[in-house]
């Protein structure tokens, strides 16, 4: 059967158009009208939508909470990148290099938190930090460090750092597997050659393993940065709601509060634009920064 041109186009349209219409309505249109809304003062009802030009942006620059939310976001980005990458690299190298027999056990266990719901992770860790019943304070008391116990999530100084541990805990498995995949492709002959040259295991790690898995490291860092900037507010919302006294608000949770709790939808959209700009800018800069000559031996 020879297809006519018309039939071919009809089939193409059948495949593409319905999906694209839904994608346009539920993804593309909201993104662009988000930009549009950022120029209005708007409490939600159609009647009182007032065009104020760059008014929301002026407010954004004068809002003293905004710089704090940005700082908090980048604090989480930096601590998560360091925490996850150091531990994931260590675990990946240890498991691959030592050819440990029970390696599948570690792979399975370490990865599991990656598919746990953030709700479960957040609530579980809220309880771990619970001042009177929680694991952290109980453990500190047990080893005789009563003076270190504190209401972790209730303290303005400690609440934000306390959010790092659950994020690292939940994230490490995925990146460990990514790095293990990279290490698996390195030919053994490199290590044999290095050993003949008298390089110890530490030198082998720095001179052979690390340069050769640089692509995986780069992707992992970018992935952590993107997912943190675009999603850190979920665990914040569940564990602290931005408090105490705004000390854990990140950009996304502040947007949620402004738009969906205080009904400043126009200003919320402006915060959304800021998140978009900052995350695109960060990814762009990071890609420049992480560019490195491809290593070939």
């Amino acid at each position: 059967m020879v297809q006519t041109k018309k039939q071919k186009y009809l089939f193409l349209a059948f495949c593409l158009v319905p999906t694209f219409i839904l994608f346009a309505i539920f993804t593309l249109y909201p993104m662009f009208s988000g930009l549009y809304y950022s120029f209005f003062r708007w409490s939600g009802s159609a009647a009182n939508m007032e065009f104020i030009g760059f008014g929301n942006y002026v407010r954004l620059f004068n809002d003293s909470i905004i710089p704090r939310t940005i700082m908090h976001d980048y604090f989480l980005v930096a601590t998560k990148v360091v925490g996850i990458m150091v531990l994931a690299t260590f675990f990946a190298v240890a498991i691959m290099q030592l050819k440990i027999k029970e390696a599948p056990f570690y792979r399975i266990i370490f990865f599991f938190p990656n598919i746990m719901s953030v709700v479960v992770i957040g609530i579980l860790w809220t309880f771990i930090y619970n001042p009177s019943l929680g694991l952290v304070n109980s453990a500190l008391e047990f080893i005789g460090l009563e003076s270190w116990t504190r209401p972790w999530l209730g303290s303005e100084t400690w609440a934000l750092p306390s959010l790092v541990l659950p994020s690292v805990w939940a994230g490490i498995g995925l990146f460990m597997l990514m790095l293990m995949g990279g290490i698996g492709t390195i030919s053994k002959s490199y290590y044999e050659a290095a050993e003949l040259d008298g390089a110890n295991e530490w030198q082998q790690f720095w001179k052979v393993t690390l340069p050769l898995i640089w692509p995986q490291i780069k992707v992992s860092i970018l992935y952590i940065v993107i997912t943190t900037l675009n999603g850190s507010f979920i665990i914040v919302q569940i564990m602290t709601g931005g408090g105490p006294n705004n000390s854990t608000h990140v950009m996304g949770s502040y947007l949620y509060q402004q738009a969906f709790v205080q009904y400043n939808f126009g200003y919320g959209a402006t915060i959304g634009v800021m998140i978009l700009v900052l995350s695109l800018l960060t990814v762009f800069l990071l890609q420049l920064l992480l560019r490195r000559e491809k290593v070939q031996y």
């Binding site: 909201p30 993104m31 988000g34 809304y37 978009l276």
Partner: peptide, 11 residues
């Protein structure tokens, strides 16, 4: 790659 939060208000 795009943060979806911005879209949630119009959505």
């Amino acid at each position: 790659m795009i943060p979806m939060v911005l879209g949630w208000i119009p959505l």
